[in-house]
């Protein structure tokens, strides 16, 4: 009898573990459909937004069954994470140790040596195998289009 009670308690404990582990998931994408089935073609029950918290009820392949507000449905793992969405990480600006400044300082030190060997600054900085063009990268980084502007443009085009 004692053993039976012991086993029952153990079993009860094991059964409660999955409930205790129910995790919060957070929407990472700008919007995320909560669907009636684990398939993108299924009916949309609700639409969650970036940062919304979801309670996970079940997991199946790349899909999570979740409760969101008063709805229960499926969301793709491609749109969520177990942590709230992070802010932008930048190595270009706003950090106390500006790595770009570090890189430029180093580059100019290299430039002196490179000039003596008749090499271009870029060529001397890194690869023996490939040409490099950091000025091109800086140009790419200089494009200033904010997220809202881009999203509104995209959605206007597809008529949403």
């Amino acid at each position: 009898m004692k053993t039976f009670i012991h086993h029952s308690l153990l079993l009860a404990l094991l059964l409660t573990v999955p409930l205790a582990q129910a995790v919060d998931l957070y929407v990472q994408s700008v919007k995320a459909p909560i669907l009636s089935a684990p398939s993108f073609g299924s009916a949309k029950l609700a639409e969650a937004a970036k940062g919304d918290a979801l309670k996970e009820l079940e997991k199946k392949g790349g899909w999570h069954k979740v409760s969101y507000k008063d709805k229960t449905g499926w969301i793709s793992r491609l749109l969520i994470s177990a942590k709230p969405p992070a802010g932008r990480v930048s190595v270009l600006e706003g950090t106390s140790e500006n790595l770009e400044t570090g890189a430029r300082k180093r580059a100019s030190a290299f430039t002196t040596a490179a000039a003596a060997r008749g090499l271009s600054e870029d060529r001397s900085r890194v690869s023996d195998k490939y040409r490099v063009n950091f000025k091109g990268v800086e140009r790419m980084e200089a494009v200033r289009i904010n997220d809202d502007e881009a999203l509104n443009f995209l959605l206007a085009g597809i008529g949403k």
Binding site: S29, K31, K50, I80, S81, P85, A86, G87, L151
Partner: peptide
């Protein structure tokens, strides 16, 4: 913005 890496 429809991807899951808003930090990038």
């Amino acid at each position: 913005q429809f991807a899951n890496r808003p930090e990038i």
